[in-house]
Design a binder for these strands. Structure first.
Lengths: 215, 215
DNA sequence: TAGATTGTTAATCGATTAACAATC
DNA sequence: TAGATTGTTAATCGATTAACAATC
């Protein structure tokens, strides 16, 4: 577990923005650049330069006046701060289309999440191999989760199955649930639930579109 | 297009919370209840009652002191405000696992987004039928988008293909892009981009988990 | 009526943005 | 040196929460 992540409480907005800086920095690095200023980053991502400076400061990086930040240093600071060098293992529950997409997505491992096993309750799926992962019977989840000391559950089951699956995860000693279903989960207060809320995102999209059409 | 959506500028946080109220209200309605108070909603969703009251006020709903809100009225107000009764049509670009999951997901139509066509550039996929949708050649997208006056593009291609796909959408007259890829899109300022940012969500999850483990 | 709840105004809190000294 | 940029403090802005009158 990365100590940096919780050394100082970093605001939620900052935490959400930090991962977005990385791809741009990587791109600059690939172009051969060695340093970058906040102004430059802010311009590209349509943010305020001061905000970028404060966000980056959260990672502990120190820049040079008149120069900016050393790219390699900055990228390493981001990786360390976000725990990307310190992977957590997670179990995926539900291997439908979304689950299969998650299994096949190669962007999680470099961002500190390693999916080590995938579970389903469909006898037609159990035993099959999807994207290199053998699908296991969800009944085996509790014992395996305790044995491997898994802390993260990734929920990708159909909405109606979500509450029961969440309960199973909690009973298996999992501490955090990444909820990719539209269901609202009721769990004990010590369990962390992070919702990927497509409805919310869609509502913002619709509203912004409506507003732009009116002009 | 629903006028309510842009009548008064509603704050982003409110807009993001509103869709989450609905499933709880629906559940209460199915249990035969006819009214609900803010206190009750707030308790269930772990929010502040005043916040709930202000959020709901944005939809134009009027409650009754000592009673609360009439459930049917409140649900209708939410549906209208969020444009759920006034569907927009969208094109899906990219029918990999994620795209297939989106095509199969029945939660978009009731939330105002109807996927009317799906596109891919893989000759092996074009012509095939996925979840009842025939996959079309992405080269046909521009003419079809203009003919049907499509305003929303849903981007579910692999990250490296995202910038080109976004450009195609923009050139096809699309006004809003729902970006489900991890790529950062650079588009003209009048184009609305709404990112479903899994990295950001994952960063928050990791950070909260790290903080909770330290205690 | 008494009391729970709404609607609204005021206070607080936290994040963003502006200003500016320090520095290379 | 001059000037661009960092780091930081102060000001502003906006969202959340508290307080309370109105109401059924």
């Amino acid at each position: 577990m990365n100590a940096d992540l919780s050394e100082i409480a970093v605001s939620r907005p900052t935490l959400r923005r930090l991962p977005a800086y990385y791809p741009f920095l990587k791109q600059l690095r690939e172009q051969g650049r060695e340093v970058v200023s906040c102004t430059h980053i802010a311009e590209h991502l349509h943010l305020d330069p001061t905000q970028v400076r404060k966000d980056l400061a959260a990672t502990g990086i120190v820049g040079k006046p008149r120069i900016g930040y050393h790219l390699d240093e900055l990228m390493t600071a981001l990786e360390n701060f976000l725990g990307w060098n310190n992977s957590q293992e997670g179990f995926l529950v539900g291997v439908g289309n979304l689950g299969a997409a998650l299994l096949g997505y190669d962007g999680f491992a470099p961002r500190g999440l390693k999916i080590v096993a995938a579970f389903d309750n469909d006898p037609g799926k159990i035993g099959q191999t999807v994207r290199g992962h053998r699908i296991l019977d969800v009944q085996k989840l509790p014992s395996l989760a305790r044995r491997l000391n898994i802390l993260i559950g990734i929920l990708a089951v159909p909405a109606p199955a979500a509450p029961a699956a969440a309960e199973l995860l909690v009973d298996s000693g999992i501490r955090a649930i990444w909820n990719l279903t539209p269901a609202y989960l009721t769990v004990p207060p010590e369990i962390i639930v992070e919702n990927v809320d497509l409805s919310a995102s869609l509502a913002v999209l619709s509203s912004r579109l409506a507003a732009s059409m009116q002009r």
